[in-house]
Design a protein around this nucleic acid. Structure first.
Lengths: 347, 347
DNA sequence: AAGCCAATGACAACCGATTGCCAAAAATTG
DNA sequence: CAATTTTTGGCAATCGGTTGTCATTGGCTT
């Protein structure tokens, strides 16, 4: 039992030459048999395939990459692996990449432009393409990078650079209407990082919509898109005198919920809160969060599809170079009718 | 501006021979200058370094891997990328791998033994080592795999295979004592997958502890370790007549909380719930979950450290081949005193 | 000044595949 | 049946590095 053929795994994995030797052909023939089906007589191919599986031959990916120039690997750069938002992205990319036989390289850029640029340069050789989330790169650098290698961004709208955009501004406006219909007339936007283009787009949409609908929409922040900055955001919101707040993302919104609970401010009785993204947890926090539901995982999947069509243009899957994914408002327990007579919330 | 030296990125990245040519030396000298510092005169090395940075030379990872046999890549296999538990693992591995200059390959095995085995065989060439979470492999297969390449498991206690174990049984017993001290005397364990070794160890510890302390500990399930199976678990718990439940993990516990809320069962007044892991969300669900806090991210980090010390044995970092990480009980709002007189919970 | 040794850089083989080109064998054609 | 075309497999170069071996150089000892 110590050496039954099934278990026997020689210490050195079989190479293409081992297979060739076993069949009495050369390595090039084996290579052709395995990669260019029609190029080799079917009888010899059968022999080769048998030998390959007998030796448990697995082509060396490195060698393959070196000679072919393709690594069958895609790098996914996330800004902050701590953020559940990116988990959904990663889930989507992983799913789609695996289906296409690609391997996923996961890199956390820690929101650093430098790390991002270096990684990108590194990956130029290591990966066949890159998916960039929340890029910190300048417009010029991004365009340049995109010219150098297949690349798709998520949530970065840049002409000439293929991208997947989660259309949160539209749904944020829906959220605004939702709040207005509940009687709110002074509403705050708890902003995220200034460098975030979705943050900017969203605020632009909200402030315009506010003017059109004749309600006060004020902007607070910027706040870090993390749970812990929810405290600052909550305090700012209370102090602002607004009766409802739309947060940059769910993380912040959940942090706000916690802080407001501590301070004894009732949600939604005293204050309504809307989040954005609908991440894991948004449905079971207390109260459950009214939020803008974004198809995050789908964004990851679509990004991969777009990227792969760049990598192998023959396969005309998805040739557009921008994909806008719709989002929608999910109403849960954190929004309610505006308090009568604008109660003094800030003690 | 279209061709300033700083921006100029030739279409073909510079190779080691380009650098060599620019310095009037051979490729081997460049290689040595860059990798074996003392091997080359410091003056020529300086010249080479200057040339390298001028040409923006980045060694080709594939070629490097091919000739050196090291890929500087580690594969992390997770059973289910959907589960927040693994996010924390991934976060830990990513952190530590990056610090060591390694790249992380992320693979979702979808809880399939076959996918796991195939990936493992594949990675034998592609990665320098593997971190295995929730492995589905048989003991024999695991030992064999571990003999073939550097490998560290997380939460799989197998003699001869280096592992990181989150010692949840100890803290689960603490949870039991906590419940007993609150007056509970009939307590259920909502089991996870039978194939999970931490599930088995935990149940073994709980049932022994229950006997020792002379309280009823019953086992329900198995249930899938997901939020959605919390409904079944909650119903089973209510029907069992126990006044407290310890769930296999937080996901299940959070699902139970939701279901119990729907059914109008008050937590913790009618029923106490304890989770396990302390994942993202455990602190802000409703009520906040009493749970066994496990240093999940640390487990990822430690696994990487152990793996790297296997890969380069010279660096005597962490030579033990099993690391048990302590966990502790975090009491939040989902546990309380036992209801008086065993109220009829099941309608 | 002869002899020796360490330092330094070049040469060439090698890692494991792919692929352009060529020659032998087989099949087709007139 | 000879001439031509197609099929099939081998040879060797190549991808971009690493590394063992060797020859040269210069410094040092005695």
């Amino acid at each position: 039992m110590s050496d039954s053929p099934a278990d026997a795994t020689p210490r050195r994995p079989a190479t293409i030459r081992d297979v060739a030797a076993l069949c009495g052909v050369t390595a090039s023939t084996v290579s052709r048999a395995l990669t260019t089906p029609g190029r080799v007589n079917y009888r010899t191919r059968a022999r080769i395939e048998a030998a390959a599986s007998e030796l448990n031959y697995i082509p060396n990916a490195q060698a393959k990459a070196l000679s072919s120039g393709r690594t069958r690997t895609v790098a996914v750069l996330v800004a902050d692996i701590t953020n559940p938002f990116y988990f959904d992205i990663i889930r989507g990319t992983q799913l789609q990449l695996k289906a296409a036989g690609y391997t996923q390289l996961l890199v956390d850029t820690e929101e650093s432009e430098e790390v991002e640029a270096n990684t990108l340069e590194q990956m130029r050789r290591t990966a066949d393409g890159v998916i960039l989330t929340a890029s910190q790169l300048s417009d010029a650098a991004l365009v340049a990078a995109s010219g150098r290698m297949p690349l798709v961004t998520i949530n970065r709208d840049m002409a000439g650079v293929p991208s997947v955009i989660l259309d949160t501004p539209t749904a944020t406006n829906q959220a605004l209407d939702h709040l207005i219909s509940l009687g709110h007339s002074r509403i705050a936007y708890l902003g995220g990082p200034e460098s975030s283009s979705s943050n900017m787009r969203r605020w632009a949409a909200l402030s315009t919509a506010g003017r059109e609908r004749d309600v006060d929409v004020v902007r607070l922040g910027p706040f870090a898109p993390r749970t812990y900055s929810g405290a600052a955001a909550a305090d700012a919101l209370v102090h602002s005198g607004a009766t409802a707040g739309i947060a940059f993302n769910d993380l912040m919104a959940i942090g706000m919920l916690q802080r407001l609970h501590e301070r004894g401010v009732q949600v939604p009785e005293d204050l309504s809160i809307v989040g954005c993204d609908d991440i894991f947890g948004a449905d079971f926090c207390s109260p459950p969060l009214t939020t803008v539901t974004a198809p995050i995982e789908q964004a990851g999947r679509v990004a991969v599809t777009m990227l792969l069509s760049q990598i192998s243009p023959g396969v005309g899957l998805l040739q557009r170079n921008q994909e806008v994914l719709p989002t929608y408002l999910t109403v849960r327990g954190s929004t309610g009718t505006a308090p009568a007579g604008s109660p003094r919330l800030d003690r």
